[in-house]
Structure formats: structure tokens, C-alpha cells
């Protein structure tokens, strides 16, 4: 029976693939340029930053939180790395420090959530504002340009014919997938997001895992920062504005429940791809940027509606 196969798990697992497939089919019929290798690679490159941020975001949302600070954190990490490199620090060390700062600030937010008991929304909203301010102070509001070679490689280089940003995204996807699917800490994230009280009564170290989630999101922001800085060949003080919302959108379209406890790395990746393909297709079809925003909003709501219908059974 066909209907019998349309069980929620089946749909949830493959529904996104179907949706992406249909989208690709329609767009390839509408535009001759869509289904070309260079365009497809271009899409992957375009989605890489959002996908990386969305994977970090997924980890936080899974445990029942949210991280609004990633866009600002990205700008700060990029500026720090670029600034330190310009100042004469070894580029690799500068990059490491940029990521380190992002992780450290993620930990700070995690501590405020896990140990001070503040709501994640408020803590990371404060982070969004404060980290942007820090970036502007650090850069004095001006872009940092003239970056050394390793930055450019991260943004525009290729390895075995694959763009480095795409490579970075895929590696981070595998890392996140491994974390969520195979490790005890991954399981704890699901447990805390699913029922924090029950998790605590089962001996799950709730607070440390929460801190870890924000640190992981910080890592994602730092990684995305290096890719973006390399791509632009400069660190912009306003970089990443609004990226947190795109990341949340990708996670939600990918089946991550904002209530926590449900979602996968692959789902989020597919969510980011769907949004990316949609953007790319609309660009190819010369849809006005204004309408593109509307389309994106509709897709997010549709994804949630479909998800709700499937779960309700």
C-alpha cells in the first residue's frame, strides 16, 4: 500500500529530498542555466556559510535553545582574525584566534544560560548587539582589507576541484552528523531538548551540555567567518547582519523543531540547500529581490505546515 509507506518517519526522512528534487526539476525546466555543473557548484558555494551557521544553530535548537548572536559573532571573529593577521601575526594563528574568540563568547553565553538560568533568547539577543558593537569598536567601523594568502585560499581556493568553502561545509556537516548521531553528548542534546526534567533525573549533565551547545554554535560562527572573510577578501564590520535568521530558517525548513529535541544535521543541510536553490533559481529567473523575500517567507511557513500535518497523522 502506498499510503502505508507514507508513515511520518518515512516522510520526515525523505520528504525534504523529495521537495529538493521537485524544486530542482521545476527550475531545470524553467531555466537552461540551472542544471549546469558550474551553477550547481555555485549554489553549494553560496549556501556554505548559511549551512555552517545553520548546523551550529541546529545543535543549540536541539537542546531547546536559540542563538541569535551568530551573525555578530561571525563579524567579530572575521575582524579579529583579519586584524591580527594584518598586524603581523601568523595568518594561521590569527585564524585560530578568531575561531577561539567565537567559541569563548559562545561559552560565555552558554554559562549565562546554563548556570545563571537566563533565557537563551535574551542572552543571545544581548550577544547580537554587544558583539556587533565590539566589532565596530575593534574595526573603528571600517573594513579590514589586504589579507594574506591563506585567507584567500579559504574563500576562493579549491581542493581536488572542490571549492574550499564547500569542503569546509561538508566537513562540518559530517562532524555535526557524527556528533548528533553517534556520540553520548549528541544524545544528551536530544534528551535535554525533548524533556529537560527527565534528562536531569536520568543523570544527564544538563548544564555542561548546554554550554557545549553554545560553544559549538560559536565554532560554527568562527568557521563561517573565515570562509566569508576569504570570499570577500576583507573583514566587513557589518558582515553577517541577519544571518542568524537565515540559519534558523534553514534549520526549521530542515525539520528541526524549535521546541527542541527533534532535528538532524542532514535535515538542516537539506533545508539550507532548498533555500539556496530557491534563491539561485529566482535569481536565474530574474525574480525581483523583493519578491524573493516573500517567497522565502512562504517556504518557511509551508515547511512548518507540512511538518505539522505529517506529525499529527
Amino acid at each position: 500500500m502506498l499510503w502505508a509507506r507514507l508513515r511520518p518517519e518515512f516522510l520526515a526522512r525523505y520528504g525534504l529530498v523529495w521537495a529538493l528534487g521537485i524544486l530542482v526539476l521545476v527550475l531545470s525546466l524553467l531555466s537552461p542555466y540551472f542544471l549546469t555543473p558550474s551553477n550547481l557548484l555555485n549554489i553549494l558555494r553560496q549556501v556554505s556559510i548559511n549551512a555552517i551557521l545553520a548546523l551550529g544553530m541546529t545543535v543549540v535548537i536541539l537542546k531547546g535553545g536559540i542563538d541569535l548572536s551568530v551573525g555578530s559573532l561571525l563579524a567579530l571573529a572575521g575582524a579579529m582574525a583579519a586584524g591580527l593577521a594584518i598586524a603581523g601575526l601568523s595568518p594561521v594563528l590569527a585564524m585560530g584566534l578568531g575561531i577561539g574568540v567565537a567559541i569563548a563568547l559562545g561559552v560565555l553565553q552558554g554559562l549565562l544560560v546554563a548556570y545563571a538560568g537566563l533565557p537563551p533568547f535574551i542572552v543571545t539577543l544581548a550577544g547580537l548587539t554587544a558583539f556587533r558593537g565590539l566589532t565596530l569598536v575593534y574595526t573603528d567601523g571600517r573594513p579590514i582589507t589586504g589579507l594574506p594568502e591563506p585567507f584567500l585560499f579559504l574563500g576562493n581556493g579549491t581542493v581536488l576541484g572542490m571549492p574550499v568553502p564547500v569542503m569546509a561545509m561538508l566537513l562540518f556537516l559530517l562532524l555535526t552528523h557524527f556528533l548528533l548521531r553517534y556520540t553520548a553528548w549528541g544524545r544528551y542534546l536530544y534528551a535535554i531538548g525533548g524533556n529537560e526534567e527527565a534528562a536531569r533525573l536520568s543523570g544527564v549533565p544538563v548544564a555542561p551540555i548546554k554550554v557545549f551547545a553554545y560553544a559549538y554554535s560559536g565554532l560554527a560562527a568562527g568557521l563561517a567567518a573565515l570562509v566569508l572573510t576569504g570570499r570577500l577578501n576583507s573583514a566587513q564590520p557589518t558582515a553577517g547582519t541577519g544571518f542568524e535568521l537565515d540559519a534558523i530558517a534553514a534549520a526549521v525548513v530542515g525539520g528541526t523543531s524549535l521546541a527542541g529535541g527533534r532535528g538532524t544535521a542532514w535535515g538542516t543541510f537539506l533545508g539550507a540547500l532548498i533555500i539556496g536553490v530557491l534563491n539561485n533559481g529566482m535569481n536565474l529567473l530574474n525574480v525581483s529581490a523583493f519578491y524573493q523575500l516573500i517567497a522565502k517567507g512562504v517556504v518557511i511557513v509551508l515547511a512548518l505546515l507540512v511538518d505539522r500535518l505529517v506529525r499529527r497523522r
Binding site: G194, N195, A199, L201, S202, G261
Partner: peptide, 17 residues
């Protein structure tokens, strides 16, 4: 409310502690 994580599999619930 306290005993189980209803969305997780029975297996994952038993093994959690």
C-alpha cells in the same frame, strides 16, 4: 513529565542513564 523523553525511542530512554 519526569520519567521519559517521549519523542526519543524506547531504546534511547532506557540507555540514557
Amino acid at each position: 513529565a519526569q520519567g521519559l523523553i517521549l519523542g526519543l525511542s524506547a531504546r534511547a530512554n532506557i540507555s540514557l542513564p
